[in-house]
Amino acid sequence: MNGNSSKSEMQAAYWMATPWLIGFTVLTVYPFLASLYWSFCRYDMLSAPKWVGLANYRRISTELFSGGTLAQAIFNTTYFAILSVSLSVVLGVLLAVMLSWEVRGRAVFRTICYLPSVVPIVAACVLWIVLLDPQQGMINEILLKLGIPAQGWFKSTSSAFWPPAWPEDHAGRIVGSKDGLVLMGVWGVGNLLVIYLAAIADIPPQLYEAAELDGAGRWRQFWHVTLPMLTPVIFFNVVVGLIHSVQAFTQIYIVSDGQGDPAGATLTLSLHLFLAAFKELDLGYASAVAWMLFVIILLITIWLFRTSHRWVHHQGGA
């Protein structure tokens, strides 16, 4: 290829990349730098940003240690993220194994389990708000028939797993709004099923044959073949699931009437900083919280990758 044609190639490349380059500069690089700068400013959108040094970050640390709104938001986010991710892993693996069985009507079962994940989030919220209504909701009706007391769901501040207690002390514990959100999320586990199913289909049949020769029954085959072979996908599930649930916003905003109701029980970091920015016009503080969120996500991701070799099984290593 001669020099002339590669110069025209370069020109073509630049103009073809131009739309993205403009968007990247104006909608990513500038906002990225601006929010970093504003996190050191007092800024209300009406007058110019005013440099206040570390004041916003100092406010964050005070709120954290004095148990203010921010501490509550961090607790809610952590509870929601950990419960969502662990349930999605357990249910994802369990359902995928069952859906990989060669049974009659397998395609129907797969479609049924995948379908909830295509339901638009707003429609899913409408559905679950009605289903989980503490007074008239279908779910509480069913629970009552089964002899289980009515739960508070989206109207209750309590949570099923915090503070932790022995199972017998859990009796009478009310399942609350965060648990409702987790339940709603787990219902949409279908996307993950697709990936888990593909991974199960990729497990070499010889591994099962060898396990069977060694006299391993169904359970041992699951523990010693299926589960280890699925760890790379489980790892992916954990990383992406944590990032997604820490950033979750729409369903939380809708279910909590846009303010973390009831009594801040669903006020997550996303919602907290959204309200700080657009309700209280405290853009400096909101930017500082956003950067804190970013750093937390980054640290968790790095930590997950660092510790992954301890439990993620990689094929073809030796």
């Binding site: 909608l27 990225f32 601006a34 504003w38 950033q247 970091l269 959204f274 853009l283 969120l293 991701t301």
Partner: peptide, 24 residues
């Protein structure tokens, strides 16, 4: 270099750029 940067931007939470983006 730009492609590496493009990949990196996928890791940026939307909350970080939300406010300045809104003002733009």
């Amino acid at each position: 270099v730009l492609f590496a940067v493009l990949i990196a931007t996928m890791l940026l939470p939307w909350q970080v750029t939300m406010v300045p983006r809104f003002l733009v």
